[in-house]
């Protein structure tokens, strides 16, 4: 990755135009040829540096509910839990972490009751006691900025 790639990523992250010809506008801003820009964008996507070009949606403003969940599960059951988590499209991010509460994931659903239903199902399917699954809905957002700097 060279300096131009980094400049391209920065523009793609911060100023992706809501215009019919976004790459033409980006090429102009970067003062490079649009074909050169496009070739590099495709390379960055194919090499996995750019996960996707997409929309970061404020689920709450869009009318959805979300939460962070922590699960305390014996190591030998982690694989089973992963398989289960994979099956829920409402579960978007999941991490294995170094802690007694070892699986952490985020859920986005149409409302609170759907989140409760999903958590109940997971608890039952993994045979976990109530206190092994903790639910942490956001009370206040101080920062959300996942851009690379």
């Amino acid at each position: 990755m060279d300096d131009l790639d980094r400049r391209i990523i920065k523009e793609l992250q911060e100023n992706f135009p809501l215009e019919i010809n976004p790459y033409g506008i980006l090429a102009e801003t970067l003062a490079i040829d649009v074909d050169e820009l496009w070739r590099r964008v495709v390379d960055l996507v194919e090499s996995g540096v750019i996960r996707r070009i997409g929309f970061s949606i404020d689920s709450r403003k869009m009318g959805y509910s979300s939460t962070l969940v922590a699960v305390r599960i014996p190591p030998e059951q982690v694989d089973k839990a992963c398989e289960l988590i994979d099956r829920y499209p409402q579960i978007t991010h999941s991490y294995l972490r170094e802690d007694a509460f070892n699986i952490w994931f985020t859920v986005i659903a149409e409302d609170r009751s759907q989140i409760t239903k999903i958590l109940d199902e997971i608890r039952i399917k993994l045979d976990l006691a109530e206190e092994k699954v903790m639910n942490f809905p956001v009370e206040k957002l101080f920062k959300l900025d996942a851009r690379f700097k």
């Binding site: 992250q13 911060e14 996707r52 970061s56 404020d58 869009m62 959300l144």
Partner: peptide, 15 residues
């Protein structure tokens, strides 16, 4: 602000 941001979402590990 229902769309918080649009654009590239990068892989932090690769960056």
């Amino acid at each position: 602000k229902k769309i918080r941001r649009l654009g590239a979402i990068v892989n932090h590990f690769q960056m």
